[in-house]
Design a protein around this nucleic acid. Structure first.
Lengths: 208, 208
DNA sequence: GTGCAAACTTGCACTTAGTGTAAGTGGGTG
DNA sequence: CACCCACTTACACTAAGTGCAAGTTTGCAC
């Protein structure tokens, strides 16, 4: 209550984060061993060494525990976006932020999730939610940068398009390369991301 | 088996469609009367005059029965997109297709759904799924138009961006106008859609 | 119209998701 | 070291979603 008010993550906060991470890791682990759709929240809880009820104290659903992988992945890029200088052209900031998606450490769990889930419907929902959440974060960040009287339509259309470009690049990359994380493969992901933003910046003019 | 092979919707098909529609209508009706989150699949089934089991024969979840509103709304625009001449610039086709979103008949149920659900999380998922499905349909339609050797990254990034623009315009419009369906309000929706596609076509260049 | 086969509906039983509640338990702080 | 509060857990319950088998309707041929 005195000095460590809200800035420092208290010991308890750290523990909670650890539990959360343990559950998320367990979820991925169980997904690996049993395959998509062949396990329950109980399986994950057991693997994580907590009760079923505790699982639901941390995640609202089974899919959410897996989507936390995607969230972490996107949060990283979001952080980069926020760190860009405010006077930089937005698409340039976006390009720089998207580069973070090609970081080996960050993309690895994401690629594994991709490969383990492929075309699963239920999971796809939480996945979409994560991308949508990211879009909203970009909108907020961009609004903050451009001031309160920025055009809302501009903000929303732009943020949505940026995210779509990121998603498109990730999809293409994964279809081409599977979960190949070699330097060369990551370079191609980076190129896809650059190309996508390039298309966006040129208004998808076919001649470009 | 002779002539009505597969082209005409057989009597059985019509009945199924009618049941499906009855359930979807019932879902909206119950949503209206009880409010979001305060009803179950059983309530909808009862209102539609079918068993709970039959409900699940038609829709995989409660949210899906409501999301069918959005699907119908988007399918309409999709149809317009497919009808555009193949040699037309794609963004122009997109603009024309998006105009269908401002059709009073089509947008009315959508606007009501918007107003009844507002910021509900669970429903938002199925909603996102519908927009995502639409994106994939656009990708297919555009691939069909541009031939099989079109750049996949181009297709996906473009389709995603177009849908994002549509979504952005709808969101802004609804925030401004609530469920006002007057001619003037719809004109403003149309203008939002045109503006969004304009932004996309100009690469979101702030000077434009 | 009568009967038949296929399609559609329904009831039942079951697993799992998700939540409220109240009682435990243990770690951090004074 | 003892208290207290945050976190965990067990329990009980509602509702989602599904497989199955028995009923009921519907389209169709005769």
């Amino acid at each position: 209550m005195t000095t460590s008010e809200s800035v420092l993550p208290s010991r308890r906060e750290q523990n909670k984060l650890a539990t959360r991470r343990a559950i998320a890791d367990a979820a991925l682990s169980v997904l690996r061993s049993k395959g998509i759709g062949n396990f329950t929240v109980e399986d994950i809880s057991e693997e994580a060494g907590v009760s079923r009820r505790t699982f639901f104290n941390y995640f609202p659903s089974l899919e959410a525990s897996l989507a936390s992988v995607t969230e972490g992945f996107l949060d990283n890029a979001l952080e980069q976006f926020r760190l860009r200088p405010a006077n930089e052209p937005i698409l340039e900031s976006a390009r720089a932020a998207l580069m973070a998606l090609a970081d080996p450490m960050t993309v690895a769990p994401m690629a594994e999730l991709f490969s383990l889930t492929q075309d699963n419907r239920t999971l796809a929902r939480s996945e979409l939610e994560a991308w949508d959440h990211c879009t909203n974060q970009i909108i907020d960040a961009a609004r903050h940068r451009l001031g309160p009287d920025a055009d809302e339509l501009y903000l929303r259309a732009l943020a949505g398009s940026i995210v779509s470009c990121g998603k498109a690049a990730m999809t293409i990359w994964f279809e081409d390369r599977g979960s190949d994380l070699s330097a060369e493969s990551l370079a191609s992901l980076r190129q896809h991301l650059i190309n996508a933003i390039g298309l966006l910046g040129s208004g998808f003019n076919p001649s470009a």
